[in-house]
């Protein structure tokens, strides 16, 4: 897929809570085709402390309105600076980068995202829906503020929720949600979020022999396969998460699970 380096214009910047915001970006040209799981490397201007671009997933694309959405969690200076972007300001993207989720050979799947890990899941749910693949969505977080976009997800399938403190949905870890008891009824589990959470999901999926894909968030410099900084250990040696990922089948990864 051809990659682009473009200035996009901010058309919305919606604060979901203290920590999360959704950027809407548009262009005078038609946006290129983007696939679920792919990401953009965003240049952070106006902050001399931020040197490298920041990788952020494609959260959703509305081709009718020509708008690309990105869901971002503020964790440091880069994401903090992006959160202050105003409508009509421009931001430079290198995109679309990386591979996509495997949507072949399935009719009934489950998507699990913890916190900001839901970022790539909404666009995946949209694509599954278009392909008439039944999707069930499991969202998790520490508290209700971390449960994002539940209403949007409901358009595409049944939504299950877990919070550590029980302020929304079931109380407990996302990996213990009651829907997980029925995991073997699904043909594939897609998952994104903190690494320890993904490893628990991967272990459960492996044990129950359910196919499982995870989206990794290794730190990156170039995002285009040039620096070899972002590697994950796989059965075929070190692979760049930015070009051969970010989505991997857990059978490829050398995880101790």
């Amino acid at each position: 897929m051809k990659k682009y380096i473009n200035d996009l214009t901010v058309c919305s910047n919606r604060r979901l809570s203290d920590d999360y915001f959704i950027l809407g970006l548009t262009s005078s040209n038609a946006l290129p085709e983007m696939l679920p799981g792919q990401f953009a490397e965003i240049k952070v201007d106006n902050n001399p402390n931020v040197f490298l671009r920041r990788p952020i997933s494609i959260h959703d694309v509305d081709y009718a309105k020509n708008v690309l959405y990105m869901l971002v969690k503020i964790v440091g200076q880069g994401t903090q600076t992006l959160s202050t972007l105003k409508v009509n300001e421009t931001v430079n993207l290198v995109y679309p980068l990386g591979n996509t989720f495997n949507m072949d050979g399935v009719t009934n799947v489950i998507l699990a995202g913890g916190g900001c890990g839901i970022a790539p899941m909404l666009y995946l749910a949209r694509h599954l829906h278009q392909k008439h693949i039944k999707a069930t969505i499991l969202l998790g977080g520490r508290t209700m503020i971390d449960i994002l976009e539940a209403k949007e997800f409901k358009k595409y399938g049944d939504v299950f929720i877990s919070t550590d403190d029980g302020s929304m949905g079931e109380k407990g870890f996302i990996t213990n949600n009651s829907i997980m008891k029925k995991l073997s009824s699904f043909q594939r589990l897609y998952c994104c979020g903190p690494l320890p959470m993904m490893k628990v999901f991967a272990a459960i999926a492996k044990q129950q022999q359910v196919d499982c894909e995870v989206s990794l968030e290794n730190t990156m410099a170039c995002g285009i396969g040039a620096c070899l900084c972002c590697v994950a250990e796989t059965d075929k040696g070190n692979k760049c998460v930015c070009t051969e990922g970010p989505v991997f089948n857990i059978n490829q990864l050398k995880w101790q699970i």
Partner: peptide, 23 residues
């Protein structure tokens, strides 16, 4: 060469450190 283990990169003020190790 497989290079060094991840993490191989750290952003630093106006620059970066790498430890790719000739993969």
């Amino acid at each position: 060469r497989q290079g060094n283990a991840y993490p191989r990169m750290a952003e630093t003020p106006a620059g970066m450190l790498n430890a790719v190790g000739l993969q």
